[in-house]
Computed example of a mutant assay.
Amino acid sequence: MASFGLRVFDENGQLGMDTNSFTYQVIWQGVIDFSGSTPSYTLNISGFKPANCVFMIIPTRVQDVQSSEGDGLGNTKSYPFVTTAVGQVTVLPKNPSAGASVLQTRIVAKAYAIRFAT
């Protein structure tokens, strides 16, 4: 047994995760800023594979968090539309199937591409 790392057990006392056999690596990080006129982001990320990677977006400004379901500016505070492919992540300010009258997001967020390995 290792003398370092993290071990997580389930309610039955069975080992669920052990950082000696499960690792992750941040392979890209940056700011996604839709507060101006940026129409979209196409990020070429070496080593990104949808099968073992995740792309996450975390808002960085309080005004980008929707206050309630009834918030009239909900679309401008929504998460961008993300598609992934091998080596690439595309981030759009709204769903491509949304009509022209649908407002796009205006958030500023920190984004991360993370690769998992076992």
Rank of each mutant, 00 (worst) to 15 (best):
residue 2 A to R: 12
residue 5 G to K: 10
residue 5 G to M: 07
residue 6 L to R: 14
residue 8 V to D: 04
residue 9 F to R: 03
residue 12 N to L: 14
residue 13 G to M: 05
residue 15 L to P: 01
residue 19 T to H: 02
residue 20 N to R: 15
residue 23 T to I: 15
residue 24 Y to L: 15
residue 24 Y to T: 14
residue 25 Q to H: 14
residue 26 V to E: 14
residue 28 W to A: 13
residue 30 G to C: 06
residue 35 S to K: 06
residue 36 G to E: 14
residue 37 S to Y: 05
residue 39 P to Y: 04
residue 41 Y to M: 04
residue 45 I to R: 13
residue 45 I to Y: 14
residue 48 F to A: 04
residue 49 K to W: 14
residue 49 K to R: 15
residue 51 A to D: 14
residue 52 N to C: 06
residue 54 V to G: 09
residue 56 M to L: 14
residue 59 P to Q: 01
residue 63 Q to P: 00
residue 65 V to K: 11
residue 68 S to E: 08
residue 69 E to K: 08
residue 72 G to H: 10
residue 72 G to L: 14
residue 75 N to A: 14
residue 75 N to I: 00
residue 79 Y to N: 14
residue 80 P to G: 05
residue 81 F to L: 03
residue 85 A to T: 12
residue 86 V to D: 15
residue 87 G to H: 05
residue 89 V to N: 00
residue 91 V to Q: 01
residue 92 L to W: 07
residue 92 L to A: 06
residue 92 L to V: 03
residue 95 N to S: 13
residue 98 A to V: 02
residue 98 A to M: 09
residue 98 A to Y: 11
residue 99 G to H: 06
residue 99 G to A: 09
residue 101 S to P: 02
residue 101 S to V: 13
residue 102 V to C: 02
residue 103 L to Y: 07
residue 108 V to M: 01
residue 110 K to Y: 09
residue 111 A to D: 03
residue 117 A to N: 15
residue 118 T to C: 01
residue 118 T to L: 06
